[in-house]
Write a protein that binds this DNA or RNA. Sequence first.
DNA 1: TATTGTTATACTCTATAACTATA
DNA 2: TATAGTTATAGAGTATAACAATA
Lengths: 142, 142
Amino acid sequence: MSLSTARPDPLTVEVEDLIGTVVARYYEEYERAAARHALTGPQARILALLTPAPLPMRQIARALKCEPSNVTGMIDRLVARGLVERRLDQDDRRVKLAAATERGAAISRHLRESLDFARVPLAGLTDAERLTLRDLLRRMLA
Amino acid sequence: MSLSTARPDPLTVEVEDLIGTVVARYYEEYERAAARHALTGPQARILALLTPAPLPMRQIARALKCEPSNVTGMIDRLVARGLVERRLDQDDRRVKLAAATERGAAISRHLRESLDFARVPLAGLTDAERLTLRDLLRRMLA
DNA sequence: TATTGTTATACTCTATAACTATA
DNA sequence: TATAGTTATAGAGTATAACAATA
């Protein structure tokens, strides 16, 4: 009997469902937090991506796992709201860099701070428990 | 200093990031699995919702956390593909029930079985570790 | 009157294909 | 010729507002 077709035990199913609930809550909270700043999820993700440093359109597409043609419109909308600006790359004149403006970066930082989903529930765990959780998640993602 | 504005410790930040990675991977895998059956994410979620039992349009909207007006079109597309059918509720003639067809339910079950994201990495943990993970997740979600 | 589902409309995100300007 | 970004287009999901049928 192969592993992938074996009927999972009840404990594994329960953990799977718990992870599904975590995922659903995380997404909801992220969308809600973004909406408080009149941003869509993808817009908030782009802003978070550009806050450390400007990025070529191409790399934004790769990070968002979408086609480069879609990035044009998304950046257009952020530019129209003064949250992002386009810059030319001196080394390769085909490249356009998207850079968060002061206001865009400020909103992005504020948004990140307001994302309490993980922080608040985690505060209910002891240091030792957080350490255990970290190790288990690390092994799951390895 | 209030809890919500306190700078979180490095361990909490790391666990937050790990959870973010879990969420991203889970979503990607779900979309990919749905796409293998030519379904979008919301379509797959509706089909999963209807596989145990038919549901009124209104309840589908609540489960998906979207406006009821959107459910009409999504069900239309599933009906057009023979995966869902509309039924009348005998008790309240305003209500329309969406029911998964035999084929729709079969696809939904097959899709669920192919969702290996959680099952495979979880297989690398011992029973005791899965138990610990379950308890920590339960407390986070409580 | 209130509720269920629908229609109409507009916006955002998505992929595909064709185009431009640079390399 | 290959690559970066864009435009054009079509489909899907989303919210808002107005409507018909039923309660």
